[in-house]
Design a protein around this nucleic acid. Structure first.
Lengths: 208, 208
DNA sequence: GTTTCTCTCCCCTAAAAAGGGGATTTGAAA
DNA sequence: TTTCAAATCCCCTTTTTAGGGGAGAGAAAC
């Protein structure tokens, strides 16, 4: 049976060592190489290939999310398994939207890592239990999240910075009435009735 | 020469494997054991000992900060080297206040990990460059951070939750005038002049 | 070519917050 | 015992925000 060639992208020496230790005794898996930055990963794929890329989200030079998009445009595109410490819904969602084949957390045990690699290599998606729940919650959140216009986002930003309507009006070269209107619309869209609640809700809906 | 007996506390199999891989070839270092939770670490130290504990801050059952305090009360107390993904000033500060002998980030290279272990074992403190800067910044921040009374913190909390003065007054069984006074004092202490600025400043000063 | 959305601006009133001032009680520290 | 900080409450005025309404210009969608 053909070996699955795994490429690791992570800027933590400890994690690279750990993954290699967890996988090297595994029959069916071999290492194609490692990269500690997005750029060195891209450099590798110019002349080489791999079956599965274990891709950290936090890289020093570029987001793992962007790198995922890059890798999935290659021909042939490797399978990409996102790996991160954070089970943040937005990260997971963005990664999957960029074409990732799976997402796992760094606290996963060895057998699950192996399972995830073989699952994505065979063409299926792999999301661990918690991650899958987070993704569903994130999608639900997005559905019912209020949609703000560009101008409203701008006004919201300056409100959060502590400016009064008069100052914001100055900043955006419009009348105070206009900012007043935008502010009222923001309160209405987020279903709140004062500045503190507005900022709380905006923060919860990741609008800041 | 006597070996340094190292004990690892981390709930990530990947990190444990990585540390072992980075250290097992190192002359002068041997493993005393591992624990994947605070409780199993405590259990180990009932009948065993170690020279240096590599201690993750994020553990499933208890904070690494608390565990550090526990370990440093043992006789003889092991040296404790805090290890975390986060270079958050408050974490570093809290850890050192609990008696930790050093603090490093999980992205450190092998040679620095080795150096850190030997440094703390010989009785000295070890803080990597970035961590040291963060700790200094944190101490400076603390010095010039406004000091709020208990009641002011309480009022600030409810303001951040979006309650008006009238609602807060109801909640705390005092008159609206009182909340008004507290609110004015908060604005004065944080040197701001509206609710949005208050919340921004409070967040920056980690008062929420 | 009409509808819809966004952004702009205005009117009005009411409520809330901001900015001054001062005052009393209580409990802990000096 | 006095001093001091904290918490409580009140007065006043001004500014800012909230809540209601409406309306026009321009661009995109249908």
């Amino acid at each position: 049976m053909k070996q699955v060639r795994v490429f690791i992208v992570d800027d933590h020496p400890m994690v690279i060592e750990g993954m290699q230790a967890m996988l090297k005794a595994e029959p069916g898996i071999e290492f194609a190489g490692i990269a500690m930055s997005a750029n060195s990963c891209k450099a590798f794929f110019i002349n080489h290939s791999a079956d599965v890329v274990l891709l950290d989200i936090n890289l020093p030079d570029e987001s793992g999310i962007e790198l995922c998009g890059y890798l999935k445009k290659l021909i042939p595109a490797p399978k990409v398994l996102g790996i991160s410490n954070y089970d943040s819904g937005t990260f997971i969602s963005q990664m999957m939207n960029k074409g990732a084949d799976g997402y796992v957390l760094k606290n996963l045990p060895k057998n699950e890592l192996v399972k995830a690699i073989f699952t994505v290599h065979s063409g299926n998606k792999y999301l661990s239990g918690d991650v899958s729940l987070k993704l569903k919650a994130e999608n639900k959140r997005k559905e019912q999240a209020p949609v703000l216009t560009e101008r409203e986002k701008e006004v919201l930003y300056w409100i959060a910075q502590g400016l009064t309507n008069a100052h914001i009006a100055d900043k955006l070269f419009v009348s105070v009435s206009t900012i007043d209107s935008h502010r009222k619309n923001l309160l209405a869209k987020l279903k709140v009735n004062n500045t503190a609640s507005l900022l709380k809700s905006a923060s919860e809906n990741q609008l800041l």
